[in-house]
Simulated scan of single mutants.
Amino acid sequence: MKATGIVRRIDDLGRVVIPKEIRRTLRIKEGTPLEIFTDREGEVILKKYSPIGELSIFAKEYVEALAQTTGMMACITDHDQVVAASGHGSREYEGKGISRELDRVIAEREMKCYYGEEKGKIALVENQKENKAGLIIQPIICAGDAIGSVALVGKSNGERPGNSEKMLVQTAAGFLGRQMEQ
């Protein structure tokens, strides 16, 4: 555990403020769900809650099927990291933090398609090497909230995903959103 040197007091309603610097670093915004744990030494641990993380085994199987079907790399993310990835180059993505641009796309709740060297193309993960292949991103919506995304990344420069790949990504995101509601 990393010491920050910041001390906060609990108010009369049992609340404690998480310092702005920590919220910014961990991308904790108003409404971000947190899990609360305690350990034997009396420590209270706050962890960002990821509903998609609970489906990680299922998500891994789903991206493997998407990658096999399309021949492209497939990723499923939550608001923080790539939960599951499969296909050529997936090792560079799995478990990595998502980029701020991808977080913005998730918040916008609309499918985005990027082709080749198009301006405005985004990185899926932080510090990603430049990729000139096509990219499709579909946010996962659960109970009205955008909770993550499904993405397909082309395997070669200039590869343009077609309508069938767009439909597969939409279907995957819709299915995962409904699974989370159950």
Rank of each mutant, 00 (worst) to 15 (best):
V44Q: 05
E41P: 04
G97R: 11
K2R: 14
Q128H: 01
G144L: 04
K60G: 06
T4R: 14
L135Q: 01
I10D: 06
N163G: 06
M180H: 05
Q170Y: 09
G14M: 13
G31D: 13
D12N: 12
L152Y: 01
Q179W: 05
Q128N: 01
D103V: 00
S99E: 12
E43Q: 13
S50T: 11
S56N: 06
E92M: 11
G120K: 00
Q182V: 10
N127T: 01
I106L: 03
M72P: 01
A173C: 10
A65N: 09
E159Y: 02
I141K: 03
S50D: 11
M73Q: 08
K60E: 03
M72C: 07
E108T: 10
S164R: 15
L124R: 03
I6N: 11
I52N: 06
S86H: 03
V169W: 14
A67Q: 10
G71E: 12
K60W: 01
S164Q: 10
E130Q: 09
L176H: 10
Q182W: 01
C142P: 01
P51Y: 05
T38H: 10
R91A: 00
V16W: 11
F175M: 10
E54Y: 12
G158P: 09
F37Q: 11
E181I: 12
C113V: 09
L168T: 09
A143Q: 06
L13C: 10
L102V: 04
E64I: 03
F58S: 12
E118A: 09
Q68P: 00
R9D: 13
E30C: 08
S50C: 08
K29H: 13
G71L: 06
G14Y: 15
E108P: 07
K96A: 08
T25F: 04
P139N: 00
N157A: 09
G71A: 06
A59F: 04
K119W: 02
E126P: 00
D103K: 00
I147T: 10
N163T: 08
Q81T: 03
M1W: 02
V125A: 07
I140E: 02
T70C: 06
I98M: 05
V105K: 06
M73T: 11
P33A: 14
K119G: 01
R15K: 14
S99Y: 08
F175Y: 13
R109A: 08
L168W: 07
F58D: 14
F175D: 00
A3N: 13
